[in-house]
Write a protein that binds this DNA or RNA. Structure first.
Lengths: 154, 154
DNA sequence: TTCATTTAACTATCTTTGACCTTTATTATA
DNA sequence: TATAATAAAGGTCAAAGATAGTTAAATGAA
């Protein structure tokens, strides 16, 4: 028997076809449709729609809540972003981060202003924190910003 | 389905167009119009028309009462950046930070892409840190980014 | 057995409403 | 006229409703 998670994965991917780079769905509706626990949807997203898989998720809770899934196109640009993203991992020094930002600028994926902005975002982490923690924070911040760039409509 | 709060927000903003920096409305009338509880109006004002969003609210109770919504005149770029910078201080919640970023976007001091980038830079700070520390970090990061914007050649 | 999947209980966040409170203007009364 | 009552606003806050997220235990597949 086919796995539920696989069915949900296919279903979502069928919505994200060549036309739609982006879909929005209601977690509860989808769970209803597949007769499963709502958290099953989170499981599928967490295991099959991660940035490493080339997807970005946004969501909101409360009334009118939703889950938005954005597919990254596979252009050179996206591949570069993807590569940087994976390279960053869970910990990176600010020096390395600066190099990545510089590369994005050189490749004209971001403007010089944006490059400065990104560097600025990483700098205050000259706060008194253990080095390991600082690098983890740096990695988290940079990855988050790279995802934001990846989501742009270009 | 569209959210009631969003509809009310749009409605108010449509009244506050390029001509009108300031409108006056009756809370009960507006609530009537949207068939909702009067306090819903307060909710919308509290979440979408704060000073951080670039609005000031004045009101009066009793007979002839009213709510006046004033869109702050866009001070020049430097003053606005300065004001936000000082407002941030040493600690700020991500929710408030988001409002400030939104205002910078509305005032066209940063592009929508840059706004997303800044929001992204603040988001991973949803990392397990004590709240006070998180807000301090958020403040530091945002201040640093605002300085970077202030330094731009325009 | 081991790893992936599924579920359920609990948590977090955002919206909407309603009951009760405060302020201001107007009207009635001494 | 001065004061008291009443009416006509708007304000606050907490509870209920509507979503989504997290985590750990149970289950199932390889």
């Amino acid at each position: 028997m086919r796995l539920l998670s696989d069915s949900i994965e296919s279903f979502i991917k069928s919505l994200l076809d060549s036309e739609n780079m982006e879909i929005e769905l209601r977690r509860n509706e989808l769970a209803q449709h597949f007769q499963c626990a709502p958290s099953q949807i989170n499981y599928v997203l967490a295991t099959r729609f991660t940035p490493d898989h080339g997807y970005v998720i946004e969501s909101r809770r409360g009334g009118g809540g939703f889950i938005r899934i954005v597919r990254m196109a596979s252009t050179n640009r996206e591949e570069l972003l993807q590569a940087h993203y994976q390279r960053i991992g869970t910990s990176i020094s600010t020096a390395e981060a600066a190099r990545i930002i510089d590369n994005l600028k050189t490749e004209e994926i971001i403007t010089p202003d944006e490059a400065s902005l990104m560097l600025a975002a990483l700098s205050p982490q000259a706060v008194p924190l253990p080095l390991a923690m600082k690098d983890a924070l740096c990695a988290g911040t940079l990855r988050s910003m790279i995802l934001s760039i990846a989501k742009r409509r270009i």
